[in-house]
Structure formats: C-alpha cells, structure tokens
C-alpha cells in the first residue's frame, strides 16, 4: 500500500482566462479506491484527462505509475484503463466484438482477445447478451460493458468518470460492488469521479473533495468530517411530548455540550459537540416530558456536501 500510483503536484489547467484546475496536489497509493467528489463543472473530468495524457496541463507535474503522461501518453494508456463519462460503443457491433476491437488496439491477437472478452463478459454478468448488438443495450448494461472494456487491457489503474450516471439504484449498487471486488481481488487501483456522495461514501477508501478546481480536503470519511466540521459534530433528533416548549428547551440547553436546540416540525433538532444522547434522554424525563423517539445523527458527507457544494464554492476551509 505504500507505493504511489498517481502523483500530481501543483497541477494547473486554464481555458482562456478561466482556471479550471488550480494547483492540485493528489496522491493515490496502489490498490486504493479513491473517489473524486465534486459538483458538475468542478474540473474532475479535466483532471482525469490530464492524468491520461489526453489534455496538456499548464503547470505542475504528473506521474502515473511512475510515467509522465505529458511526454509518454502511450505508456500511460497501456497501463491505465479509462472509462469516459457516458461511454459509447459501435452500435452495430455486438458487445463481444466491441471488446475484441479494444483488445486488438492494445496489440492482442484475435484468439487471445476473444478468450479474454468471454471471461470478462461472464464476470460482469453480460454473457447472455454478449452477441447482442450494443445499440440494443440499456444504459446500465453499457456501463458494465464499459467496465469490461476498461479491463480488457489488464490495467494497473482504472479511471472511471461518473460511472454511475443515469443508472437505477440497483444497477449502481451492483456496479459499485463489482468495482470494489475487482480492486480487492486484483489489486487494481481505482480512481472514480462522482457527484453522488452516497456512492462514494459506500465504496471508497479515501475521498477527495473537489470544488472550483481545487481539492478542498482528502482522506477517509471520518477524517474529512473532522477536518471540515470542527465542531457541531453530532446532532440528536428527538420527538418529545411536553406541555410547555419553553421549559423543555431551557432544560435541554442546560445540558453540558449542547450548542443549539431547534424545533423542526415534530422533531427537536439538538446540536452537540460530543455524544450526550443518554444525558438528554434523562433530562427530558426529569423535565416531565414523554420521549417517543430519539435518534443520534452522525454527520456524513451529506452535511459536508451541503456546506461546500451547495453553500457556495468560495467557502474557505480554514
């Protein structure tokens, strides 16, 4: 886990006067599943294209598997599989023929290519449709075929650009499980971009938050939460029957660690800086209230997402 597969330092890309990627530092270790999370237009695709050597950076250095993709794009493309956003296939070719063509572009012989395509199609569960024309494939099937296509060259790294876009929830879960399984089984490093935080949260070892061309934070989910939400880490939702709301509120506020109490419809929303759920339950009963529901809410990426993506991208972390 200690050798670095992707290293980017001070990466920069401009389109005209607009800076799309701004001094990006990114390191991904071997075998890791890294999620690049950001809203649309954050510069995720641009970053990926630069890693693939398909777009030239205006500053900074990149190393992918120890190779510089700017000067040696072919060597990088030999080792890295890239699934573009909304991938397309030759519609009048069958699924297997599309895969064989990819393999042959990678210099495999037809027999070898066909053999590997068959294996992969079985593995991703598309074997029954292997000889159907890809024009008749559904979106989910196309994405899965895309994954197989990426794996045809036996890559060390796979880069997936919005792989789950436009697939139904079951399809998304299957695809994500497939990706994680591949990474675990074969030690393939995975970098994928998404703006769906739940998917990222489920499968990624580490996540990078990418907003406005800058990487705001990276790390696993608890680390991210810690670095981005210093306090207000916990929240408690409670449904309480009490004759006088004012007295109840005061009683709750007096608990050590409670920062705020708010009533949202039927629920009281209590923010605390550490876990005081038990104390709150006790205090409610002491104050003569009837506690019907109590739930500790842990902050996940949801909150982070709202704060940094929807709350405005010019938000400063520190």
């Amino acid at each position: 886990m200690n050798s670095l597969v992707i290293e980017a330092e001070g990466l920069m890309k401009r389109y005209g006067s607009q800076i799309v990627v701004d001094s990006l530092d990114l390191t991904i270790a071997k075998g890791e599943v890294f999620g690049l999370l950001g809203p649309n237009g954050a510069g995720k695709t641009t970053t990926i294209l630069m890693l693939m050597g398909m777009s030239e950076p205006h500053g900074g250095t990149i190393r992918v598997c120890g190779i510089n993709p700017v000067t040696h794009p072919l060597s990088v493309k030999r080792k890295v599989g890239y699934l573009p956003e909304d991938v397309g296939f030759y519609d009048d070719y069958s699924g297997i023929d599309n895969l064989v063509y990819t393999a042959r572009l990678n210099g495999q012989s037809p027999a070898q290519a066909r053999h590997q395509a068959e294996q992969l199609l079985r593995r991703i569960g598309l074997w029954e449709d292997a000889h159907k024309k890809t024009g008749k494939y559904s979106r989910g099937m196309r994405q899965r075929l895309g994954l197989a296509d990426v794996l045809m060259k036996s890559p060390e790294v796979i880069i997936l650009d919005e792989p789950t876009l436009g697939i139904d929830p079951t399809g998304v879960r299957e695809l994500m499980e497939l990706i994680v399984k591949l990474s675990r089984d074969e030690g393939i490093t995975v970098l994928f971009s998404s703006h769906h935080l739940h998917q990222v949260q489920q499968v990624c070892d580490r996540v990078g938050l990418f907003v406005g061309g800058r990487l705001l934070a990276q790390g696993d989910i608890p680390q991210l939460a810690q670095s981005l939400l210093n306090d207000n880490l916990y929240a408690i939702e409670a449904a309480i029957d009490h004759p006088d709301e004012k007295i109840l509120s005061d009683a709750l506020m007096s608990v050590n660690g409670v920062m705020s109490v708010e009533r949202r419809r039927d629920l009281f929303h209590i923010r605390t800086n550490h876990d005081v759920t038990a104390v709150i339950a006790q205090r409610v009963i002491e104050a003569g209230g009837a506690l019907t529901y109590l739930n500790r809410v842990e902050y996940g990426l949801d909150e982070i997402y709202c704060r940094y993506f929807e709350g405005g991208s010019n938000h400063d972390v520190n």
């Binding site: 693939m52 398909m54 072919l74 060597s75 493309k77 030999r78 890295v80 599989g81 890239y82 699934l83 573009p84 909304d86 991938v87 397309g88 296939f89 030759y90 519609d91 990819t102 572009l105 990678n106 210099g107 895309g146 296509d149 060259k153």
Partner: peptide, 14 residues
C-alpha cells in the same frame, strides 16, 4: 456523438 471517440483515444494508439 456516439461517445466512442474518447474511448478509442484512451487506448494506447497515437
């Protein structure tokens, strides 16, 4: 428009 261009160009070919 079929989305095959970027897929083909990500293969190790000039």
């Amino acid at each position: 428009s079929r989305g095959t261009l970027s897929r083909i160009l990500s293969q190790p070919i000039h």
